[in-house]
Structures are given as C-alpha cells and as structure tokens.
Amino acid sequence: MTTSTGKAGAMRVGALLLAMPLLLWLFLLVILPHVDLLLVSLRERISYGKYEFSLINYIEFFVEPLYWNTYVRTAVMSLMATVLTLMIGFPVSYYIAKVMRGKGKNVLFLLCLIPFWVSELVRTFGWMILLRESGVISNFLQWAGIADGPIEMLYNDATIMVGLVYTSMLFMVVPLVSVLDSLDDSLIEAGYDLGGNAFTVTRDIVIPHAMPGIASGCIVVFMLTLGNYLTPNLLGGKDSLWFTEQIYTQFITRFNWESGSAFGFLLLVLSSLIVWIGLKLSRQTLSETVS
C-alpha cells in the first residue's frame, strides 16, 4: 500500500516536473504580464511618480468618441478582412486540396508560403512600391493609356483591406487545405451522384465538413488582423486609424502606459468576445477547432 502511494507520488512529481516548462511559460510570459497590465491600467497619474487606483482610463475610452470609433472601426474592418480572406481562401484551398494532384499541389501550396519568406515589413513595402502614385501599377496604367495621370492607390481603406487579406491568406489556407484534404472524395461524388450540384454539394457536404478548419482559420486571421500594426499603418497612411496603432501611440509617443494598458485590455476583451460569438454561431467548440 505504502509503496504504491509512494510510487504514485513520485509519478505525480515527475509529471509536475515535465509540465514545469509549460507552467513557467504560461505564468511568467502570459499570466504575469497580463496581471501587470491590468494593474497598470487601473491607476491614474496624480503627479510626478505618484499614482492612484482609478477607472479613469476606461472611462476615458468610453467618453471619448475618438477611441470608440477606432475600436469599432478596427473590429468591423477585421471582420470584413476575415470574411474576404475566407471567400478567397476557400476556393484556393479547395483547388489545392481537391483539384490539384501530385507535384502541382505542393507547388501551389508553396506559392502560398512564399510571401512569408520575407518579413511583414518587406512585404508591406512591396505593396507600397506597387501602389504608390509613382509606383509600378500607376506607371503601367499610364503607359498602357488607361490612365491620364498618376493614380494614388495607397492610403485608403481598400488598400488596407488588400494588405490585410494578403497577409492573412496563408493562415486561412493552411487549416482549410488540411481539413479539405481529410474530406473523402467519394463524399463529394456521392453528393453529385444523388443529384446535388456544385452549389448544394458545397453547402451541404464540403462546408459542414470544413467547418472546424473554417472556424480555426477565421479565428487566427481575425486575431492577426485585429492585432496587426504595420499593414494598416503603412498602407493606410493619414487615415489608417487602427486600434493597435492607438495602443502603440499611448505607450510610446504619449508615455501614457496607463491608458495604453487599458486599451490593450479592451482589445483582448473585444477579440475574445468576437471569437466566442463566432464559435457560438458556427456551433463549434474551441477544443474542436484547435485540435
């Protein structure tokens, strides 16, 4: 009896030791900074180096329409980018997973990966070179006689959207390809055989099967987009207005860590809330989606 409990105890210690890196990581790098962030967000600067507990940073957010607008705008744009990425990514993934065979499949998949061999900054600058007034596309259009003068394609919401969708595509395509790969071709054929057409087979068979992949792709893309800083900032120019930009500004240029922390927390709440609603609507669970 005693030996067996001893053994079990040793096992438990072993398991704990094994879990130690994970627990340490979670605690030191995830939980602790967030607790600190929360504490910072709940204080107000009184004078030089003097702070007091206060909800002023949160109140400020709700009272000042400027922050609200940015917040809502970021959420809406991120949702739009997610939907657009899904709408473009789904046919692409379907093509890769179900239509292409053999070598071509890998090549296409790699093509989706290529943009990620360079950093996001370089990618975004690439877009800027293409789209700016004195850029490649503008010059081409003038050369082809389609445009009379230089065209500025940067610094508007459509450009931000293009950049966001481009940046997010891989994160949608990877889970979708893997989930569509796991769909037995004969299910699709059975759908046709029983009288379905492209639309009904996609709606009744392919999409329900792909739902976990769609959900996980959308969650990742949404989070990345919501938390993106470079793309909206560089492509959006003077009207970019992204909430992460607001957080950066509060922390770095305003030295206002308190309201920056509060904004950070509000962003966390927003993304959690929207992901939760999305999971509810698609009747997926987080554990299903993650696995």
């Binding site: 400027l66 940015t70 009207d239 207005l241 607001q246 500004t249």
Partner: peptide
C-alpha cells in the same frame, strides 16, 4: 497627444 489623436481620427 489628445489633439494629435483627434487630428489622426478626423476623416
């Protein structure tokens, strides 16, 4: 900062 934020946010 507030002033700059408002300028940035203006459409």
């Amino acid at each position: 900062g507030k002033t700059l934020d408002r300028v940035k946010a203006a459409q």
